[in-house]
Design a protein around this nucleic acid. Structure first.
Lengths: 161, 161
DNA sequence: CGGAAATGATTGACGTGTCAATTATATTCC
DNA sequence: GGAATATAATTGACACGTCAATCATTTCCG
């Protein structure tokens, strides 16, 4: 196994890459479809509502909300616009910093979130957990950690001293 | 470990789910950004060009192309429209079946694909393979297979006889 | 033959994500 | 104090994906 770095992926590695990325994509799509069907929410909606539900008073500053769910600001801004139009959240000015904006959970948003929770948890079990052995679930966690760590380091070319 | 099915995911399973889905998403985004940067192609463009490159005479019927890369037809139709406008492919009528359409690789498309290939393979190695141990790469393959198999079966509630 | 159903592909509407530019307010520092 | 800069958020343009509707052609079959 000499010289693992600085070469192209093998056929097998390539096959696994494609399989992996396509499958996770299909998984995401299936989950999105389930959520949409069960509750009329997109996964984005769910993330936002979850974060707001867990925040004190159901309100968060835009930038903190973005950080919490790991979104870019502009993405969040667009999404909040759509959710506002649907009455799931409300925008308010941020007291103390007139640049800021706060997103506030509405009654309707909270209700939608509560309706979505149980079916969504069930979907996670059915689509993900039930498809794997406990060992594989653990492996998925390890895998995610390793990939995330690597991506965090830029994922770039690895220096070999 | 009694009664694994028919319950909600545990906290740990939920954490892993979120970690897994977010990380694979970040991976996809990173790969898309790399490809875009290196060659001006989207991952969709790359899939289409790859399939056409491997097809005899660089041409494929729309429906076969869709099947090859696993896309819905309407998605492909929209994408081919964009690629056509950029000169990467050309549309021709299908001889023998006037309903059909063929997508044909242009010189420009072939050139763009060739320019993209090496950097893309390098990116797969750097972002994916290099972030994992060989055992983890193999585990990723197994994981994808298990998830895909489960999704293929509907991923629905599991009957317990 | 000829009309109904099936097939191949496109289109339009809409939600979504990214990037670059913009607006408005705060902070910094001379 | 006031110009330069930094920060918070929004906006517009555009690529992308999905769904339902549409259009053209072909196939089926009575």
């Amino acid at each position: 196994m000499s010289q693992r770095r600085g070469r192209f992926p093998t056929r097998e590695e390539l096959r696994i890459w494609r399989d992996f990325i396509e499958t996770t994509d299909a998984l995401r799509a299936a989950m999105a479809a389930r959520l949409q069907n069960d509750s009329g929410l997109s996964t984005g909606d769910y993330s936002v509502l979850l974060a707001l539900s867990e925040a004190p008073n159901g309100r968060l500053r835009s930038s903190e909300l973005a950080a919490t769910i790991g979104w870019e600001r502009s993405r969040l801004s667009h999404h909040l616009g759509r959710m506002d139009k649907r009455g799931l959240i409300r925008r308010e000015n941020c007291t103390g910093d007139n640049r800021g904006a706060e997103a506030v959970l509405t009654e309707e948003g909270a209700a939608a979130f509560h309706r979505a929770t149980v079916p969504h948890l069930r979907a996670i079990r059915e689509l993900f957990v039930d498809g794997l052995t406990p060992a594989q679930v653990a492996a998925a966690g390890k895998l995610a950690a390793a990939l995330r760590e690597h991506l965090g380091n830029g994922g770039g070319p690895q220096e070999i001293p």
